[in-house]
Structure formats: structure tokens, C-alpha cells
Design a protein around this nucleic acid. Sequence first.
DNA 1: GTTATCCGCGCAAGCGTTTGCGTAACACCT
DNA 2: AGGTGTTACGCAAACGCTTGCGCGGATAAC
Lengths: 341, 341
Amino acid sequence: MRKVVSSGQPTIKEIAKRLNISVSTVSRALHDHHSIGLKTKARVKELAAELNYERNQTAVYFQQGKTFTIGILLPELSEAFFSSAISGIEDTAYSNNYTVLLGQSHDDEDREKQIIQSMKQHRVDGCIVSIGKNTRNYEHFEMLRQARIPVVFFDRVPDLPNIHAVSVNLESGTIQAVDFLLKKGHRVIGMINGPEQLVASKERATGYIKALRKHRLKYDPELIVNADLTAAGTDSAMEYLLSLKRKVTAIVTFNDYVAMDAVQYALKRKLEINKDITFVSYANTPVSGYTAFPPAASVEQFPYEQGQAATNMLLSLLNGEHPLNDYTNTIMESQLVIHNR
Amino acid sequence: MRKVVSSGQPTIKEIAKRLNISVSTVSRALHDHHSIGLKTKARVKELAAELNYERNQTAVYFQQGKTFTIGILLPELSEAFFSSAISGIEDTAYSNNYTVLLGQSHDDEDREKQIIQSMKQHRVDGCIVSIGKNTRNYEHFEMLRQARIPVVFFDRVPDLPNIHAVSVNLESGTIQAVDFLLKKGHRVIGMINGPEQLVASKERATGYIKALRKHRLKYDPELIVNADLTAAGTDSAMEYLLSLKRKVTAIVTFNDYVAMDAVQYALKRKLEINKDITFVSYANTPVSGYTAFPPAASVEQFPYEQGQAATNMLLSLLNGEHPLNDYTNTIMESQLVIHNR
DNA sequence: GTTATCCGCGCAAGCGTTTGCGTAACACCT
DNA sequence: AGGTGTTACGCAAACGCTTGCGCGGATAAC
């Protein structure tokens, strides 16, 4: 028989042989099992330390059918929102002795499926997923369910029944945002929203409407425009909004980047920011503080905290503290942050 | 004997039993081994598909002593530079059928050690590491070497002999930056550099000096100041530079964030940007394009590409295409990007 | 017709660890 | 002396998969 890999690493078998005891005794000694005598324990531990013994986790994973690993699948690792979320996930996973396996889908459904497949083969204990923009088919997640691998979705949550999810309620933040503008005296408030099918866009829209209703103001559908989040899309959205008969004095933009594009456009049109026109946005990107005209306020979406919450939910699922079939949808509140300058 | 986990997942044993053949035949059939008859292969594959068989990777990993997993250890997952790098690493790992295990050190040496330890126990095949700011002790990497786990360092590379590394040569970019300023007529050029012990700081400084020498200009040490990269630190650096007898008309800042802070300071001092004072910087952060006064140029450091290069290097080490003890230090050239507005 | 060749498959070991159970040895109580 | 515990350890199976080797039978070569 060929020895596949010699790796050199000492095993419990090695320790057992040298000490003339059985491997089971060594294993138990290293785990501080009560049925092992103190002197034996000491001898084992001493030799283990001397040999630089390190337990072969792959063997344990295999034997236990558990890997203490969670898979995390996101559209884009380099996006600020997601990279903060990863940070939150890794931190709480780390402090619970879990490790994190990473994959990015680039919003490609096929790649998403392949990554899920690979994580399943890797026998991750659970997954945290933010789905891609174009994902319409959810059979890969159905496979995970069948394999009894729990999944917690976050932020970009699929429209499915019976899932575990963590997301942020943008409605509340939007209401705060519109409230803020109304209190400043604005009456004609535009909104540059994102693609219609996105849940996030819907929440923004309903928040906007609810805020107006709260103040007994009429909602004018003309004031909401769906854009594609590119600079060009923002430009035409701005062009449209500024062309309306009713003079728009404030605009809620989909995120800080859109806001910055919109500001550029407004400047070209010789509008004075915060006077002729005021912007409120989402994400609260720190860098917007460096711009000449940051949005007057921005809705914080707490990516780090969402990552933490999703991980905690997954861990309680894994620990059995929470039944797998008790589907919970944790919704965090977003919060308007006012930039005073 | 207690059955540890029933998991429900079918195994090759199951397939073998149903087909009345041996497990070895099943295994080989699934691997398209030449010594298995075509009809048997077909039968096996059919049943495997029907049962939704999926190979238990943990068993394979264990048996082969290889996990097709690479560990990546970075100071901060949420920093733009590193998250781009992660993206590059994940992409090339993915297309080579490797998966990626993640850990962040938060620049804490102890945590760095623990993560390395955990990755070692996880039996990752190799590691890609960017060390923490405060790491002075490298014994954890020495342990990896002893365990024959190859490590490729990138960007933040320790000052050790005999390591594999990928980094970007900031000297060339700095020379380009200073060249750029000289051509624009600037003669008194300041530099807000980072902490002295950082290699990156040293490279910036030598690049600066070399560029001046190239143009037969005298180097005035007073013009380089080391700062701590905080807004306050930048302010005092600016105060110092602007207080010099020789009038500084251009400043090279450590990165775009420092540049933005410096711009704010200059504005407070009623200086006109790009007229009284011009800034050139590093990182080429896209967001700086939105600011009122972005640096006139910025040295691109190619984090995504560095990630790719590091991964490719590690993979060729793992595939034996490159001997482990042939230490290579790939240095990519940074490149000045001029922002025309 | 004998020998060499190849095809198709099974046997069994082995990867490192955990763990239920069995069992000596000894002490204690009655 | 017999019974009941307790302590300290060993035996061996099991997790799922890969792979060197052996072997019977069919085919080809001489």
C-alpha cells in the first residue's frame, strides 16, 4: 500500500506507541476525560507538547460529520456594504470557534449554484447568503434544505416562504428621511429609486408614501423615478425630475453614490446644493463626508451589525437552540444619520 | 456502536450494495477509471444521479491529506484595498477549484497567531497573508514552514529572508508622481508619509528622493514628514509643511484619504487647490472622483491584481510547478493615474 | 495448443479520531 | 467470603473514500 502523504505530523497513534498505551487512552487523555488517571494524562500531554502534536481536524470533521465551518456567499466581496458585513460575520464566527468559507457570485446565477454546490460538498455546517440580482431560481437552496444545512439569508433576501432571514427595514429609515425633509419645509420631494423588482426599492417607495400620508400630504407618483444606479441613469433621472412643473426642492436618492452623481448633475445645472436643492440618501458611506456637498442626511443600514445578527441566528440554529423549522425573519431598523456641517 | 450522524446522504457503499458490486468499483466508475466496463460505469452513474449522490469531501480531504482550501489572513476585511484583494484571490481560487478560508487579524498579533493556528488545524493547503501593523514576532509562520504549508505574503510583507511574496513597487509610482509634479513646474514638493517602520513608507521616500536626483535637484529632508494617517495627524503635518520657509506648492500624500484630509486643511487655510497647492496621492480610490478637489493624480496599487498574482504563485507552489524552497518575490509596478478634470 | 496480454472487477488496507463497551484490579461494606 | 462499586485502561468498530494488488476469464500472438 502506498503511503499517500507522510506530512510528518505526529498522530495520537504515535504517542500511544511511545507511551505503550492505547490510542483511545491518548485521545481521552487529551480531552481530559474523567476516566483517565492523572499521571497518564500528564505523561500524554507532556509528550504531545514535546512532539508538537496537533489534532488532525480533517479527521475529526470527517468522523463527526461536522466541520465548524460556515459558508458565506455574497454577490461582490469588494463592495463596501458587503465587506463590512463579512467583517461582522467573521468576527462573530471567530469568537464562536467557527471558520468562514467564502464565495462571491458576481450576481451570476450559475456561479451562485456552483458555489453552493461546492460548499455543500465541503460539508459546511451552515450558510449565510445574500442572493444575486438576477437569481430567479432557488433550487440550489432547496438542495441545502434537503441536506439539512441551515441557511440564513441577509440583506438580499429571496421572496420565498419559510426561510431564515436578517434584513434591514428601509421603510422606517425612509420615513425618517422624508420627515426630516418635511420639517425643513420641503413640500415637493423627488425620489431616485433603484430597479423596480428589488425589495429594497419597494421599501423605499412605501416608506416615502407612508411618510407623506402621515403628514396628510398627497402622494404624487410622478415624483418617484426608477433608475439603474449608473451615472448616466442618474443623470437622466435628474433631468426628468428637474423638468417637472412642480419645482422639486429635495431628492431622496437610492444610495450615496447615486447622491454624489446627482450632486454633480445639479452643479452642472448651476443649482446651489442645500439651497436650491437638498439631497438625502442611504448607506451613510463615510467617504461622502469628504465630498464638497455630501447629502444632508443618509440612512444607515448597519452592514456590520447585519452580519453579526445573521451569524448569531445561524449559530443558534446549529446549536439546536432554535428549531430548524421555526423560520424567523429578523428585521433591523435602519436609521437616519444627519450630517451637520 | 452509536451511529454518529445519519445525515441521510447516500454513500458509495449504498450504491455498491444496491448494484451488487464492490465499493472500489463504484469509486472508480465515478472517476471514469479506465479499468471499469462501460455498462458498469453507466449503471453506477445513473444510480448515483438518481440517489442524488454527492461525494463526501471531508472524507476525501482526510484520506488524501489535502483540502483544496487556501487560508487568507488579512488585517481588515472591510478596508477597500483588502476587499478588492480578496475578490481577486477568490476569483482565481474559484477558477482553479480551490476554496477560500477567511480570517482577519485586526492588526492584533495574538489573533493573527490564533487564526494561523486554526488554519493549520484545518489543514489548509496554503496561505496568503498580509501581516498586521504590529506584528514583530514571526514564529507562527515558522510553524507553517515546518508543517510544509506554503505561505505567500502580499502587500504587507514581513522583513524576513526566504519568503514568497507579492507586492507592489511604490518607488516607481512615486517617481512617476514626482516627475508629474516637476513637469508641472513644481520645485518645492512636500510629502506626508506614513509611519516610518512601514516598508511602504520607505519606498515612498526613496522614490521621492530618486525622482529628484534624476532631475538633478537637491533633496531637502525637511520636506518629508511622517504622520500617523489620522485626520489630526494630517492636520499637524500640513501645518508643519506650510510653515516652512521654502514655499511648498505640491504635496505627495500617503493615500487618498490623507489627501482628502489635507485638502480640507488647505481649504481652511484659504488656499486654492491646484493653484496655490497641488496634491498627488496613492490608491486611486474611485470615490475621490466625487470630491470637490480630488488629488491631481494618484498611484494605483492594483489590489485585485495583487490578489490574483499571490494566488497564482501559491497555486504553482501547491502544484509543484515551483519548488517550495525557491523563494520568489514578485514585484508589480504601481502606476500613476492622472485625473483630468 | 500454449503462452502472453489485457480487460473488468473485488479484496482489503489505511487515512486519524472518537466512543460504547468490556474488564481487570482494587477498595469498601456487610 | 461474597457482593457492589469505582477507577483506569484497552479493544475494536465506525466514519467514506481511494488505491495497490490479485485474479479469473477472454482475447490475441506465436
